[in-house]
Amino acid sequence: MLGKALIILGLLAVTDAAHARPVSYAGGWTVMEETDRGASAAIIHYSPSAFYSVGVKADWDRRNDLLFTGGQLTWLAKRWFGEDYQANLYIWGAAGIAKGIDDNPGEEQLAGQIGVMADWETRRWFLGYRAAGRDYGSLDASAFHAAKVGVAPYIGDTGDLHTWLMVEVDQRPELRDTVGVTPMIRFFKGEALLEAGWSLTDDQPLLNFQYRF
């Protein structure tokens, strides 16, 4: 089943980094909370180098009442530098335990997740893409992908409050509304990032938070 997920990811291929950088500077920690129209997740990462991070995560699939807990490894496979832009390609994988919660009687299963993220950004424009798949044994196997585009209405300097207006479009083949559209606003200041939005497709909130230290 994981093989299927890998094939799906390969077909989805690569281009953008939707949620902000999961790999920090050497010695840096990152705390992330992500809530979209289908799931909520909490992740804490430590970056031994600027090219990979290790962390733990809890991922709650609210639609299917599934909870995944495990460890995650994220690798910055490639970073492109320019005077006015930066682009990144990340590959990540997580292994742990998945189980049913609330109304789902599913018992604990060994489980895995895998994904790619890519982004290109200047101080004005942002383009991102992410794709991920999971194999929760007999509980679930699925994949999704999402693209995000953003524009900064003004250019802030170091330490200023940075603001981005963004739209994310995601596709989740297992859902009734397979394509979702979520406009959002991103605030970014110093070590903290906050994204707040609303899924026009499902009337569900989006809330992402990230802090580095």
């Binding site: 902000a20 950088r21 920090s24 500077y25 050497a26 010695g27 840096g28 600027a50 970073r79 492109w80 530098f81 320019g82 005077e83 006015d84 832009y85 930066q86 950004e121 200047t122 101080r123 170091t158 330490g159 940075h162 970014f188 200041k189 110093g190 070590e191 990032l193 580095r212």
Partner: peptide, 26 residues
């Protein structure tokens, strides 16, 4: 090259700011 956001600034501020041979960084 590639410094386009506050996270970039934070990374360099932290890396250089904790060194004993650096007295100021921006």
């Amino acid at each position: 090259l590639g410094a386009v956001c506050d996270f970039c600034a934070t990374a360099m501020n932290k890396t250089f700011g904790r060194r004993d041979d650096v007295s100021a960084v921006h």
